[in-house]
Design a protein around this nucleic acid. Structure first.
Ligand SMILES: [Zn+2]
Ligand SMILES: [Zn+2]
Ligand SMILES: [Zn+2]
Ligand SMILES: [Zn+2]
Lengths: 127, 127
DNA sequence: AATTTAAATGTTATAATATAACACTATGTA
DNA sequence: TACATAGTGTTATATTATAACATTTAAATT
């Protein structure tokens, strides 16, 4: 449990209470009243928060979401479900999935140190 | 087997013969001598090529790679290995992996219509 | 406590990635 | 031919992300 710096805490709190993934410039807009004025201040905090696993980047959306999986200390194995209509994103926490992927070896016997998986479909509400 | 338009064919050929994923503006630079002058011309061709599964986007790299998997007509189930040192990208073609992921259901019983998986590690050469 | 080191901050400028809007052209099909 | 659909060309602009540099804060080491 790492203690966050001022900017990191402000930005984490915002993302954490957002019901949906947030984009960097939406974050910037929201924290300007707290004195964070420049994109770089946002991106630096985001980089650190991703590094320590407090948030994850949804690559297909260029957006950031708080880790919903308390056991996910380091972001080396991430999986998300994304609704293609309402854009709701949920972090998937499935022991069997993570076991399967963590142990996955390709034809060369290459073992990977990290993965990111994004599933797309329609959420309950949108079906 | 869809026939490609002029711009689509030019851009596909370039990506297909590239040993590594290509970024949109690198593509633009390379096809300017063939009369494709604007980013939008590139992005439109890329969109179509992705849609029909001739190429895939490597989301974590904002780069495009030709489909290396002849059976992958429609890009609904993609998996890649990415070397974090040399940035070599390989499309993974594993029947068991695709079976596992295609049948994966989350806790809500939600079934997905599409997924993208990116593995990170070190390739043979870089270890 | 003083020194040193690493991490974080503030700021300006700019690079890289991607789309909007509109006019026009080619192609297929009824 | 008339109509619909897909593709093109062009200019402008939006969005996402990093470079470079000066300064400050926090943490570790002596
Ligand atoms: Zn997580
Ligand atoms: Zn939905
Ligand atoms: Zn493929
Ligand atoms: Zn490598």
């Amino acid at each position: 449990m790492q203690t966050l710096s001022k900017n990191q805490q402000i930005i984490f709190d915002l993302i954490d209470k957002s019901p949906e993934p947030m984009k960097a410039y939406a974050i910037l807009f929201n924290v300007q009243k707290k004195g964070i004025k420049a994109p770089l201040q946002v991106y630096r905090a985001l980089d650190k928060l991703v590094e320590i696993g407090k948030i994850h980047k949804i690559e297909s959306r260029n957006a950031f979401i708080a880790c919903q999986n308390s056991s996910c200390q380091v972001s080396k194995a991430t999986a998300f479900s994304i609704c293609e209509i309402c854009e709701k994103v949920t972090e998937i926490s499935s022991a069997s999935l993570s076991k399967y992927l963590t142990n996955f070896k390709d034809k060369d016997g290459m073992k990977y140190s990290k993965y990111n998986l994004e599933f797309f479909g329609l959420c309950k509400k949108c079906r």
